[in-house]
C-alpha cells in the first residue's frame, strides 16, 4: 500500500528522529506513513494543496492559511491535548510601573517572530480589542527568529522575555506553556516578573488533511494515531518528545481569534510572495 505522506516543518535535525519513531509506530500497525520535511510552513501548505503530501502537521497559522486558500475545504484530523486552550500572557517586571494593560500606553511591548500566532498575532489582536494599536498607542518590538516557522522556534519569544528582563521593553508576550517552563527552569524569576494580562484561549497545531485526501484513509490513520497511549511505556517516549499526554480529534473552534487577527493585521497580504 502506498504510504500516507505526512508533511512537517523542522528547524533542527533532532526533530527528524521524532518523526522516524512515529513513522515506525504507524508502519508496525499496518498503516504505512512517510514524512516529507519542509523548511517553512508556506512551502508545506503549498505542497498540501498541490497534493504532494496527504496530511500536514500544521501550525495554527498554517491551518488558517490552508483554509483561506481552499475555501475551508481542509480537515483538521487530530491534535495534541496540549494544543487545546492555550493562552498567551503579557508579562512585565514586578518592580516596573505597569499595573494593568491600561498602563501599556506609550510603552514598548516585546513580541516574538512576525509570524508567531502566540507571541505576535494573537497578543496584538488581544490588545486591539482593548483599544491599543501598535505604532499608535504602543511600540511593538518584534524578535524575528526563524521567520517562516510560525514561532515554533521559541528563540523569538525568549528574546522578547529577555527584553523585559533587561528593561528595553515594558512587557512581553509569552505562551502559557513557555511561561510555566521558564518559570520552573530558572530562565525567569517568577517573583521578578508577573502576568499583566492573558488572552482568550486558542488552539495550536493540528494534523491537516488535504481536501483531496481520501477520507477513509485519513480515518484509518487517525484511528491508529489515537491508539497511542501514554500509559504504555513504549509510546511514552514518543509522546514526551512531542509534548503531549493524549492525541485528540481535531477541532476547528479554537482558531477564530487567529483568523480575525490575520484579517485585522492584513497578515497574508504582507507574506512574501511564494
Amino acid at each position: 500500500m502506498k504510504p500516507i505522506l505526512i508533511g512537517a516543518v523542522i528547524y533542527d535535525p533532532k526533530v527528524a528522529t521524532i518523526w522516524d519513531i512515529i513513522s515506525r509506530f504507524f508502519r508496525d500497525r499496518g498503516c504505512p506513513m512517510d514524512c516529507v520535511f519542509y523548511t517553512n510552513y508556506e512551502l508545506q501548505v503549498d505542497a498540501l494543496l498541490a497534493g504532494h503530501i496527504d496530511i500536514a502537521w500544521n501550525s495554527p497559522l498554517a491551518w488558517v492559511d490552508a483554509q483561506r486558500r481552499t475555501g475551508g475545504a481542509c480537515r483538521a484530523l487530530a491534535m495534541r491535548d496540549t494544543d487545546r486552550d492555550r493562552r498567551t500572557h503579557l508579562v512585565a517586571r514586578t518592580d516596573g510601573p505597569l499595573r494593568s494593560v491600561a498602563d501599556l500606553w506609550g510603552t514598548t511591548v516585546a513580541l516574538g517572530a512576525s509570524d508567531s500566532p502566540q507571541a505576535t498575532l494573537l497578543p496584538i489582536h488581544h490588545l486591539a480589542q482593548q483599544g491599543f494599536q501598535p505604532g499608535r498607542d504602543f511600540t511593538a518590538r518584534r524578535h524575528d527568529v526563524m521567520v517562516g516557522k510560525h514561532g515554533d522556534h521559541v528563540g523569538g519569544e525568549r528574546d522578547a522575555l529577555q527584553a523585559v528582563l533587561d528593561g528595553s521593553a515594558a512587557a512581553a508576550a509569552v505562551l502559557d506553556l513557555n511561561w510555566l517552563l521558564w518559570s520552573a527552569d530558572g530562565t525567569v524569576d517568577p517573583a521578578g516578573v508577573r502576568v499583566l494580562d492573558t488572552t482568550a484561549p486558542f488552539d495550536h497545531c493540528n494534523f491537516t488533511a488535504a481536501p483531496a485526501f481520501d477520507p477513509a484513509r485519513s480515518a484509518d490513520w487517525v484511528r491508529v494515531l489515537l491508539t497511542m497511549n501514554y500509559a504504555n511505556p513504549e509510546h511514552r517516549e514518543m509522546m514526551d518528545l512531542e509534548g503531549l499526554k493524549a492525541w485528540l480529534p481535531g477541532r476547528t473552534s479554537g482558531y477564530s481569534a487567529l483568523e480575525t487577527a490575520t484579517r485585522e493585521q492584513d497578515f497574508f497580504a504582507t507574506v512574501p510572495a511564494r
Binding site: I10, Y11, P13, T39
Partner: peptide, 11 residues
C-alpha cells in the same frame, strides 16, 4: 546544512 541531508524541502 544537516537539514539538506535530511531532505528538508526549501533549505
Amino acid at each position: 546544512n544537516p537539514l539538506v541531508a535530511l531532505g528538508v524541502v526549501g533549505e
